[in-house]
Design a protein around this nucleic acid. Structure first.
Length: 664
RNA sequence: GCGCCCAUAGCUCAGUUGGAUAGAGCGAUUGACUACGAAUCAAUAGGUCGGAGGUUCGAAUCCUUCUGGGCGCGCCA
């Protein structure tokens, strides 16, 4: 409702400005006044026009207000302060509109989008940093779908990279295992109920140390690593088979971990197929023919195919032979003929946009309750969904990779795909780090020089960090304890279900409440908190509304339909009424928030909005007792207030991937 | 050396395109369960928005510069 009225007001203002002053204003700024008593919308447009029209802002505002006359849905307009134009909604009409309209008001373009997130190297357990990535990505997927977009969810698997090679080195060289004994190890772990990704977490840290441990052996050990990597890339040998087996098992564990948080994928494209299906060869031809890549015959990059780095100045046309080569250029093909990471990424992104001219084969990999997750393959099933060929893509990748991401975009633009480049979003976010205090509490050795730092980066290589499953386990244990104490009357299965929902709500909200470019200095105590600005606080508000309808022997949808027969306006004026109106106003803004979140690629806005609505409701709930209200018309209205809160909170929580339990 | 990000209450963070008196949560102090569930609510204290200039009717927000911190910048992936 709020967004629709805002657009109406915008249009009306535009018309008035045209008629009064013959001016076209590109952007009409409309905001919410600092206090609800000033109305629901405010525009400082008169200030902006003051200079152009050589007139006092207050005078302009008065003229505009006079010209606005009557606009449907608005109670009136007035001038305030030095020249603000304030608009008041017709509150009674607004309540009816909000109660009746449960649908999303405005849709962004109906694009076919592709969101890639999670993308954990399949060589160790997922940790808190990966959780931030997956939760951000999954939430954004839900937002896009809510806005009517068709979205494919992809989780890119680097199954042939150095990190997997490190695990293979660990198994085959440190542990002296063969393919058969690795199989036996996996069977043993599985029989004991141990997690393969946890085993790899420790092994990976050991291997990383082993490379560095002995100065004399260092070079030889690096050679082992490199040789293993090449065997894995080539395929068809024992190291590759071990890598394939272990990385696939770890990948399954990642999918299970994420499923605990309600996160699902449609496709797992793997690097092994990008290599073996020779995606790069096709991309290379395009890049060469369009002149994006050129062969360097001089300087430090002699013998390489390079491209101009994103953000660097276009080379000045010069005949000066002394100018020399662009030493800052990005190497895409090495002098030994192998392609770099960015090169492979360019090929992969051409595929994402349907511009490569080749496709993966596909196999079913993982079954969810309502759909299946597919994986790339060299040869696969004849029938499969269509993947790739998206109009817009979002890559959820941490901010440290902004340079390589910019280079991929630059390559697309160089190839003439300006439209695609414009719809390529590096959905970047800052890392999750541990506070030194938290690291110490978890039993890690923190070097003296690090103790004064604000935070310490999580590192899989060092085995330093909080594993995702451990964190979820701890959260579930903590919520289980609370639920058991509060609800001895419920049976165990119900209590377990509630505890799980609250734990997921706490974790997802914790990861979403920070804006993307703020580093999360992870603190276990904050993450385990269920009070204040947390997921459980919002869930609790919903539980309260459920309880009201249960006790009142009615239902939210009935309450929303009933308010139709009541004139709510008497209950919406005066100081006492402002806090009730505040609930309706906030509830009316969900569509606006959806639009803003998508436009800014920032889920945190919605997280905050949901919290504020829960807070408005809690405030209202304390002051106005619904079920004992003697005036039947007013009671109907108060019930509808609880109902609209419930409807909007459940919807917003759903987009955040958080469910609302029946009790808690 | 170059590039990107950050600095707002004791702590953790909001403040979206520049707009009215800079807001939350936690922590602190005080109060509220004989009414819909206290995982709650109310109240109080707490700020030269890192420093200095500038642009503007108006700056936490934009520009310049300095300080302090983080992250990138490879013929690694």
């Amino acid at each position: 409702m709020y967004l629709r009225q805002q657009k109406k007001l915008e249009e009306r203002l535009r018309t008035v400005l045209r008629e009064l002053y013959q001016v076209e204003v590109e952007k009409i700024v409309i905001e919410q006044p600092p206090e609800i008593k000033f109305g629901e919308y405010a525009s400082p447009i008169a200030f902006e026009l003051a200079r152009k029209l050589r007139k006092a802002p207050r005078k302009i505002a008065e003229e505009i207000v006079a010209a606005l006359e009557k606009v449907e849905g608005f109670a009136g307009f007035e001038v305030a302060g030095a020249g603000y134009i304030n608009a008041r909604l017709d509150r009674g009409a607004a309540v009816q509109a909000v109660a009746a309209g449960g649908e999303i008001e405005e849709f962004a373009e109906h694009l076919h989008s592709l969101v890639e997130h999670t993308s954990i190297n399949p060589n160790k357990a997922a940790h808190v940093g990966h959780l931030r990535n997956a939760i951000l990505g999954d939430t954004f997927v839900r937002l896009l779908r809510a806005a009517g977009q068709k979205v494919d969810v992809q989780n890119y698997i680097d199954n042939t990279g150095v990190q997997v090679a490190d695990i293979v080195v660990g198994l085959m060289h440190l542990e002296g295992m063969s393919l058969e004994s690795v199989k036996a190890l996996m069977a043993r772990l599985s029989a004991r109920g141990e997690r393969i990704d946890y085993y790899c977490w420790d092994l990976y840290a050991r291997v990383s140390q082993w490379y560095e441990a002995d100065e004399e052996e260092k070079h030889a050990r690096r050679q082992v690593r490199l040789a293993t990597l090449h065997e894995i890339e080539r395929g068809g040998n024992e190291a590759a088979a071990v890598g394939e087996m272990v990385s696939t098992a770890v990948l399954r564990r990642h999918l299970e971990t994420m499923l605990r948080l309600g996160i699902e994928y449609d496709l797992l494209p793997r690097e092994s197929e990008i290599l073996h299906l020779k995606f790069w060869d096709l991309a290379f031809e395009q890049l060469k023919s369009k002149g994006v890549l050129y062969f360097e015959s001089e300087g430090k990059n002699k013998g390489c195919w390079v491209m101009r780095r994103a953000g660097s100045e276009a080379p000045v046309e010069t005949d000066d032979p002394e100018a020399g080569p662009d030493e800052d250029a990005k190497v895409i093909v090495r002098s030994n003929g192998t392609v770099t990471y960015v090169g492979k990424d360019i090929a992969y992104h051409l595929w994402k946009f349907g511009l490569l001219g080749r496709d993966f084969a596909y196999r079913r990999f993982f079954a969810y309750a309502y759909h299946e997750c597919w994986i790339s393959a060299e040869s696969g099933e004849a029938e499969h969904p269509h993947f790739g060929g998206a109009q817009a893509i979002y890559n959820v990748i941490d901010s440290r990779q902004s340079d390589p991401q910019a280079n991929v975009i630059e390559a697309l633009r160089g190839l003439g795909f300006a439209e695609q480049a414009a719809h390529y979003t590096h959905f970047s976010y800052e890392m999750v780090a541990l506070t030194p205090r938290c690291a110490l509490e978890l039993g890690y050795d923190v070097p003296e020089e690090d103790r004064g730092r604000p935070y310490i980066e999580v590192s899989g290589r060092k085995g330093f960090g909080v594993k995702a499953d451990d964190l979820i386990d701890q959260l579930v244990a903590a919520t289980q304890k609370e639920v058991d104490e509060r609800h001895p009357e419920l049976d165990e299965a119900e209590r377990r279900q509630i505890a799980k929902e609250i734990a997921v709500g706490a974790l997802r909200y914790f990861m979403l409440k920070y804006t993307r470019n703020s580093v999360i200095a992870f603190d276990l105590r904050d993450a385990l908190s269920f009070e204040g600005e947390t997921g459980p606080y919002i869930q609790y508000a919903v539980v309260r509304t459920r309880s009201i309808f249960r006790k009142g022997e009615t239902a939210a949808d009935v309450a929303l339909a009933d308010v139709n027969s009541v004139d709510a306006s008497p209950y919406l004026t005066g100081d006492e009424a402002d806090e009730i109106w505040q609930v309706w106003l906030r509830a009316a803004k969900t569509s606006l928030l959806l639009e803003q979140c998508i436009q800014a690629a920032e889920p945190a806005y919605l997280a905050r909005h949901a919290f504020q609505l829960a807070q408005d409701f809690s405030n209202f709930y304390r002051k106005h007792h619904i079920l004992t209200e003697p005036d039947p018309a007013r009671k109907t209205f108060l019930l509808a207030t609880a109902a609209v809160t419930q409807r909007e909170l459940i919807r917003a929580l759903g987009w955040l991937g958080i469910s609302a339990p029946e009790a808690m």
